[in-house]
Design a protein around this nucleic acid. Sequence first.
DNA 1: CGTTATGTTGATAGCCGTCAACATACGTGG
DNA 2: CCACGTATGTTGACGGCTATCAACATAACG
Lengths: 242, 242
Amino acid sequence: MQTVTDTGARNRCDVCAIRHRAVCGALSNEELEAMNGISRQRLLTPGEPILSADEEITWFGNIVSGAVKLTKLLSDGRQQIVGLQFAPDFLGRAFKERSPYFAEAATDVELCIFPKPAFERILKEKPDLEFRLFQDTLDELDAARDWMLLLGRKTAAEKVASFLYMIARRSPMIGCAHHQGGEEVLFQMPLNRSEIADYLGLTIETVSRQIGRLKADGVLQLHATREFSILDMDRLSEISGV
Amino acid sequence: MQTVTDTGARNRCDVCAIRHRAVCGALSNEELEAMNGISRQRLLTPGEPILSADEEITWFGNIVSGAVKLTKLLSDGRQQIVGLQFAPDFLGRAFKERSPYFAEAATDVELCIFPKPAFERILKEKPDLEFRLFQDTLDELDAARDWMLLLGRKTAAEKVASFLYMIARRSPMIGCAHHQGGEEVLFQMPLNRSEIADYLGLTIETVSRQIGRLKADGVLQLHATREFSILDMDRLSEISGV
DNA sequence: CGTTATGTTGATAGCCGTCAACATACGTGG
DNA sequence: CCACGTATGTTGACGGCTATCAACATAACG
């Protein structure tokens, strides 16, 4: 964890964990000082709301660490997670008065937030920043469409496998130089069963049963309810149903 | 229908039906001449492919008239429509080598297309154009997330009602100065039953049954299989399930 | 007018949701 | 540190919604 109480002459962004991977990567060190001047840190605990649907948006943010879920509700309480975001994702709907969804911390979350008007001004002045945000939005749209295929056409077994495969591939173990293909992949699940269900358009019972089946089939192992080991990534990928 | 064979001195864009509503609206008349120089018209008939998934993208386009569906496939043939686009929507995935989906004409379609490299160059030079495209992308992302809620959490009845309500609200009759709320709304359905099913994550039989039920309930009337009259827009909206 | 594509309707089956009971993990206060 | 209460997760029985299979009707087309 970095020191954030020092808001003095030194630039906080210098030591930021997501300095280059976040949208800030589009800014030079000098430009970043402007951002540094208007940004501040915000810490959230699981379940804490970040944005309410239809709420007026007054600030944007970068996820420095943790997971944030974007949800939508039907009037009778049915819920759907329409986006899951991790560091170094950008948070907030640019150029709109009100948020089209709820945003809520799924885990402990560390945000770097900045006021909307100031950010939109910088956005206007720095084409690279806007371009970067544009790229990210296009990627999010691609991801949303992938998820539409899952929601509309995949079976419960395929949905759960797809989700676990996606999370597993985000694991720090993957991409580690020492990691061999075929090796066990261990990770901490950022969502509880109810949230997984809301992400996949299923019920908690169905999610639980499908995880149980994968366990019985030797595809994965549970060390705790939120501590997964994928024993066979290839099998998991197959079950995901391309 | 405009004359497009005249590619002479006069600017074709001058008489374009979507001149101001398409992304071109971000360009001045002079800037538009550059676009005019590189664009050409393309006509398509229903079912004709526009882009194949994983195909290298070589051009972009605007929809001048008609409807285009964006689809994704699972290996066993299950299909999901992940986007439905109408005039004056922009067509194509900017800044990516290959298309993440299939694009196909749903109706007769009139496109105004331009080569990808030339367009991306203009995009770099005209911040307003990029900004406009960025806005459109954000709107598409919002729409995709609305659809995720539908796919994941709505019942068949709600799905069909939501879809019909969406199409009905696009009808030329709505927004006409003479149109009264509560009046019958007539429109031509751009998709066949199979395509509606692929858009809603249902089967054709279920779609047909739900339309039948709405007819029996006096919410709508069918003059032909593709000619709908919504008799009670408010009821339809209620059934959509907010 | 025959042929094929598209759409409707009925019967049946199965996947997944619902309801319920129980198990386990977590947090709080005694 | 343990006891208790609550939140979270698992498992089982059952039912309903929607898919599947099938037959038929209607529309589109040459």
